[in-house]
């Protein structure tokens, strides 16, 4: 075990875990930040997406030792009334909801870099996050809603 101090949602948090522990399990099992979801464990589904220094990362595939000194932002850190969250609420996006943290974080990363993406750019980026229910069309509308502002 080793001690790591992380910057999570603007707060310094210290954990004692094995150095190869993926960020996902540090967030979920040690910090109680369960909004970030496990879906596949190998970076295929995107349910575990968080922002690391503003980049969308699959937290299942990033070891805790790699994110020391970086700014980690999870769904809980968005504050609950982030424009992307409000747009997703306005479009009534979620169904089962399990993938939604990943969808929101991916959309936040996209829009922070490219505030007015074309539909093709949205599709290319949002294609990384799987939804098994049927929320893709409403995600597209929610992203467009933010992009229009």
């Amino acid at each position: 075990m080793a001690r790591f101090t992380l910057d999570v949602n603007g707060v310094k948090r210290t954990v004692e875990v094995a150095a190869d522990t993926p960020l996902l399990w540090v967030l979920r099992d040690h910090l109680g930040l369960v909004g970030t979801k496990y879906g596949c464990g190998v970076g295929l589904c995107g349910s575990c997406t968080v922002l690391v220094d503003g980049e969308a990362e699959r937290s299942c595939s990033v070891a805790v030792s790699q994110v020391v000194g970086k700014k980690i932002l999870t769904i809980e850190g968005l504050g609950g009334q982030h424009p992307v969250q409000e747009a997703f609420v306005a479009e009534d996006v979620p169904q089962c909801g399990y993938c939604q943290s990943g969808q929101v974080m991916q959309a936040v990363a996209l829009l922070s870099k490219n505030p007015h993406p074309t539909p093709e750019q949205v599709a290319a980026v949002m294609g990384d996050i799987l939804c098994r229910c049927g929320t893709y069309d409403r995600i597209a509308k929610a992203v467009a809603r933010v992009a229009r502002r």
């Binding site: 099992d29 109680g32 930040l33 369960v34 909004g35 970030t36 979801k37 496990y38 999870t74 769904i75 809980e76 968005l78 609950g80 969250q85 997703f88 609420v89 009534d92 996006v93 979620p94 909801g97 399990y98 939604q100 943290s101 929101v104």
Partner: peptide, 26 residues
Amino acid sequence: PRVDARAKLTGKATFGCDVRLPGMLF
């Protein structure tokens, strides 16, 4: 609109694997 939308968009909705209890093991 769905009553559960906001909880699901803020990470607050508790799915089975999100249950956390004191002293819990995995």
